[in-house]
Structures are given as C-alpha cells and as structure tokens.
C-alpha cells in the first residue's frame, strides 16, 4: 500500500466542456451506476452513450436513432441486470435498450417497447429500487412510466435475463380526468431510493405533486400531497435517505420555484407521514425544469430557463442555502464558465 498522504483539498474546480454532437436540444443526461458512462437524449431523436476516458473526458461510444420524436428522459437500469437503458419520448413509447456483446452490428438493441393505453406522450420513467424484502423471492425488474393522460403504468420483467417480455402489473390514474388536449401538460415521477419500507413514488401531475405508496395488495395508492405549487410541476426528485429519519423530496415548478419537502414519519402506527416544506427558492426567476439530488442526498441541483445550474445544500441547522451557481458561457455572455461559490 502506498504511503501517500492526502494534501488538503486544493484541487480547483474543473469545468470540462464537451460537445454532445446532438443536433437539437439535449433534454436529459444520465450517469450509469458507477459514473463511468453517460447517456444523453435529445429532440434529435438520438440516444448517445459516452464513456469516460483516462483524462476524465467524455468520449462518444454510441449514437443511434432511438425514437421518432423528442426524447424526454433516459435512465440506466439497475447494474445487476447488465447494461440497460430506458428512454421515453413524445412518440408515445418507452423503449428498453440493452447493450450487446462486442462485435454485434448494433451495440444497443431495442428489447421492448411499451405504450400507454391512451397512446399519449410519455413524460417520465423510473426504475424502482430493488427492495430488500423481495430480494429473496423475486428477481424481477420493474419500470414505471407516466403518460400525458395522467396514468402511471408499472411494468415488470419477471426474468430480466430476457428483457423482451414485460407485463403490465399496475396502472394508477393520478388525475381525475385526462387533461384537455390543448392544455400544456407536465408529468414527472421519482421513486424513493430506499430499499426498505416498500415502494414509494412521488408523482408530479400538472400542478400537483403527490406521494404514492403501496397498499396491502401491492398497488399504488395516493398518500400525502406536497402542497403549494402554483404552476406545472416540471420535475420531482427524491433524495437518498442514508439512514436519516426523514425523507427529502424536491420539486421544480413552472412558477419558477424550487421547493424542498421533508417527510417525517408521524409518531404512531399507520404509515403516516408529516409533510413540511423546508425550502422554497425563486432564484432562477424563470421556469425551473430539473431538480436532482446528489449521491448522498445532501446537495440539490436545479436547472432553469435562465441557463444556470444552482446548487443547494443544507446548512448546519437543516436550512437549505444556495451553495453555488454554475453558469454556462453563453448564458453569461462570456467565454468561460463561471462557478460562483456562495
């Protein structure tokens, strides 16, 4: 073992530009489980896979047309099932892609395609965590997606060795009625990353956000609402709890606000949770589109129409504060990116 000593953290902030090569807006990026690969999806209907090279730069590995319309979201499957990517699109499909062995004509093969019954655009997808309690009995791989008619669909692949067979196991209507056709819609969902306590889901549907939990029969039922949204909920993110006694959920809203909700288990039985809004920021001063928690669930990022990334972190008393603002060169009108530490 080396006897290397750590120097005090003096590494400067690094900002490595790269070109995605997409011909239109990139709508989502996703790291794989290990952070060594990345998938990007764009309105140009392409899915691109990047690998990290030794210099820490992204090098494109694959690029192929994955859908017939703008692709909303991309996620990596759980690592135990291999290299799996799921995408969803305005072309009303969810597609499951699996990497094939070296030398295959197409490195990424489409293994399955799902649609909603109403044949509407799919706005978001999510893989639930592999629950610890079911690990012994089920090896299934599940996927949830939400369609523009306001339904969350849960599919399961019973034998993930063969990703070409999925069955629908649950459908939850999250709106009383599908939104009218001409209305601007927004839907998003995120699973609770905890592997204990059953599956939990937070769904943003139009201008509401609500938590859904499994009932006794294993179907999702509505639970607490996260109140206070005055516009379409654009994104939801559920923080890794890491043994905390509470959960944190962040929402991005069209009204320009980033909100953080704290869910604390109510004393007494009945699986009741107390929802408390612990942060509400309007710093973007424009629509907020994305929120994401870091790997330890302590730093929240938000992305808005102002072209800036804001990072939020809880101070010692649990109060969230702005940590830094990352601005893109163009949004600043300068040649170099600015990382403002707060």
């Amino acid at each position: 073992m080396s006897t290397k000593n750590l120097s005090a953290p003096t590494n400067p902030n690094s900002y490595v530009h790269f070109s995605t090569g997409h011909e239109d807006l990139v709508h989502d990026v996703a790291y794989d489980y290990y952070g060594r690969r990345m998938a990007t999806v764009s309105s140009d209907q392409r899915l691109k896979i990047f690998d990290l090279n030794d210099e820490g730069e992204w090098v494109i590995a694959d690029s192929f047309k994955a859908h017939d319309s703008s692709i909303n979201k991309v996620i990596w499957g759980p690592p135990e099932h291999g290299q799996i990517v799921a995408t969803c699109s305005y072309d009303r499909t969810v597609r499951i892609w699996e990497e094939q062995e070296m030398g295959s004509p197409h490195r990424w093969k489409r293994q399955f395609q799902m649609t909603s019954d109403a044949r509407t655009a799919i706005h978001s997808i999510g893989f639930p965590p592999t629950l610890a309690s079911t690990a012994s009995t089920s090896t299934g791989l599940k996927l949830a997606f939400i369609s523009a008619d306001g339904h969350v669909h849960i599919y399961e692949c019973r034998e993930p060795q063969d990703l070409t067979h999925w069955i629908a196991i649950d459908v939850v209507a999250v709106l009383p009625a599908p939104p009218p056709r001409e209305v601007e819609v927004s839907f998003c969902l995120a699973f609770c990353p905890s592997r204990w306590g059953g599956e939990q889901l937070v769904v943003g549907a139009m201008d509401t956000a609500r938590v859904y939990r499994h009932n006794a029969s294993g179907k999702f039922r509505p639970a607490e609402e996260l109140p206070g949204h005055r516009g379409l909920v654009r994104d939801v993110a559920w923080a890794v709890s890491m043994g905390r006694s509470y959960h944190l959920i962040a929402t991005a809203c069209k009204d320009g606000h980033v909100r953080i909700f704290k869910l604390t288990a109510a004393s007494g039985r009945g699986d009741r949770w107390i929802v408390e809004k612990v942060a509400d920021f309007a710093d973007h001063k424009s629509e907020v589109w994305k929120v994401a928690w870091n790997a330890t669930g302590t730093i929240l990022s938000s992305t808005g129409d102002d072209g800036k990334i804001r990072l939020w972190k809880a101070a010692i008393h649990g109060e969230f504060q702005l940590l830094s603002v990352v601005a893109t060169p163009r949004s600043r009108g300068r040649d170099e990116a600015i990382i403002e530490d707060d």
């Binding site: 807006l25 309105s43 870091n294 129409d305």
Partner: peptide, 8 residues
C-alpha cells in the same frame, strides 16, 4: 421542452 439536462 426542457432546455437543460443534469445528472450527478
């Protein structure tokens, strides 16, 4: 459509 994308 979102103009931004982000992941940790």
């Amino acid at each position: 459509l979102s103009h931004g994308a982000f992941d940790w």
